[in-house]
Amino acid sequence: HNLTITQGKLFFHYNPKLCLSEIHKMEEVSGTKGRQERNDIALKTNGDQASCENELLKFSYIRTSFDKILLRWEPYWPPDFRDLLGFMLFYKEAPYQNVTEFDGQDACGSNSWTVVDIDPPLRSNDPKSQNHPGWLMRGLKPWTQYAIFVKTLVTFSDERRTYGAKSDIIYVQTDATNPSVPLDPISVSNSSSQIILKWKPPSDPNGNITHYLVFWERQAEDSELFELDYCLKGLKLPSRTWSPPFESEDSQKHNQSEYEDSAGECCSCPKTDSQILKELEESSFRKTFEDYLHNVVFVPRKTSSGTGAEDPRPSRKRRSLGDVGNVTVAVPTVAAFPNTSSTSVPTSPEEHRPFEKVVNKESLVISGLRHFTGYRIELQACNQDTPEERCSVAAYVSARTMPEAKADDIVGPVTHEIFENNVVHLMWQEPKEPNGLIVLYEVSYRRYGDEELHLCVSRKHFALERGCRLRGLSPGNYSVRIRATSLAGNGSWTEPTYFYVTDYLDVPSNIA
């Protein structure tokens, strides 16, 4: 807008934040220059609390790290170098490059900038070799853009010569660093050979998330399962459950009422301010606690030095998902009996873990797994792929695949051998790939016309006998059925096997 004052003059007093240069501009645009008398524009009460600059400061050096910015700028000295009290560095987070010096300023003089007072450097006698002032900004957020400017702080001049310097606002972004852990990993099994893994992005990506790394490792069953005799009275049979499938998407929606109208769909109840505040506090606490764990609990591995020492970490090797089922080394339970199943799973520490690289999504279907087997899954978020990966501390989750139908069934015939004193040795093959492992066998036998009897055969007993022995049988026709019990439950009964026990007292003698 054009402003013209045809008559009258300007009068400025007691404006401590208004620089004289701005008042002189007002004289020019209003056409009143030359009308004012000496005392109409006070030299001592206008701009006496402001830094009124008329020179431009330029930054000469900028260096960044993930949490620091090192700045240096060209030296500046007023005509009387004693008038320079120091520099004021202003900075704040700036997602967009549209910041002005006066953003967030209120009537009390406060604003949204963080201000650092910096002492002037030592003055050199040689004007050509003056030290460049600077400042190291610490405690910054990774991968965050900051708006920065600097200006001088000078003393009051009796001659009211307006001098000083100020830089333009520059924008500097800190470097990326390792992201925080992925949030809320959930693993479920939808079949006997697959596990579905879902997660949420890290709360602090500290860069642009480029991919996720998912490692999985087959877990050995508890050692007590191999040692305890679950045929003993009072000892509860062990059981394991597989990871249940995901709930429906509708039930997972946030901010939804727990109660549904019987007449149909209901609208979600909005969260109160107290609920939102509580969630923010919980989120802040979780982030602080995660940072504490990362800094205190997890110790970084030592990389190899120039002395030739090897990095103890196993090298990563990509495998196809079809090879995942046989990740671990199978060892027989008892070496003397080769027909026992290889369900003991000690994992070799030198073995390469299978892994998958996930790009542009937060889910993965891990296939080719062994049925009813526990897996430990390790999830890392990465925001750099080359020249070397920059990934987060791992988040861990466990899951067990679903049982395989008929995996616990005894394959092959049940054979028998009759000894003296009416002892019958029953023999059968253990299931080759049971659900988890076989903890015991149930032997059901009966003599024709009598009630059915049951015998429990422990895992250890089966390994020693290759089956079991029935003792003290009365003469007669017998039928026997056997079924295995694994961590997933009972298998199917075998087809009945028949044998006849004679009275050993009636056996004919070869003595003449």
Rank of each mutant, 00 (worst) to 15 (best):
R459F: 10
P244T: 09
L440F: 11
A263M: 13
V327Q: 11
G472C: 08
S474W: 12
E282P: 02
S284I: 01
P300A: 12
P475W: 13
T502Q: 06
S509F: 05
K236W: 04
S398I: 05
E404S: 08
S486C: 02
R240F: 07
V359F: 09
E282Q: 11
L228E: 14
E378M: 10
T347F: 08
N383A: 08
T210Q: 02
V397I: 01
S243D: 07
R471D: 04
I377C: 10
G325I: 09
T502F: 09
N255P: 14
S342R: 14
L379G: 01
S320F: 12
S251M: 05
E420A: 09
P354V: 06
S509P: 13
F462I: 06
H294N: 03
E430V: 07
K287S: 03
G412N: 05
S474N: 11
K432A: 07
Q252Y: 03
D273F: 14
G234H: 11
I276S: 06
V324L: 09
S223P: 13
T210H: 15
S251N: 11
S284T: 13
Q275N: 04
H294T: 02
D222P: 14
S474L: 12
Q256K: 12
G491L: 03
P403S: 02
K287L: 02
S262G: 08
E433M: 05
L232A: 12
G234T: 09
V439F: 04
K236N: 05
W242H: 13
E356S: 13
K361G: 13
I410R: 05
I209K: 15
V457R: 14
E420F: 05
P205S: 10
Y259N: 07
P338E: 07
F226H: 07
F215T: 05
C266Q: 15
H461A: 10
R286D: 01
T347L: 12
P346L: 06
N421R: 12
P496C: 09
R313A: 09
V397Q: 07
C391M: 10
T347K: 09
Q429F: 12
A335V: 13
P244I: 09
S239N: 04
E465H: 12
S474Q: 14
F337E: 12
S509V: 15
E227R: 07
F337P: 08
V443I: 07
T502R: 12
V443P: 01
L505S: 10
S274V: 08
Y478V: 01
N477M: 07
R390N: 02
Y259K: 10
V324Q: 06
V507H: 03
D311Y: 15
V423D: 06
D409F: 11
W242M: 04
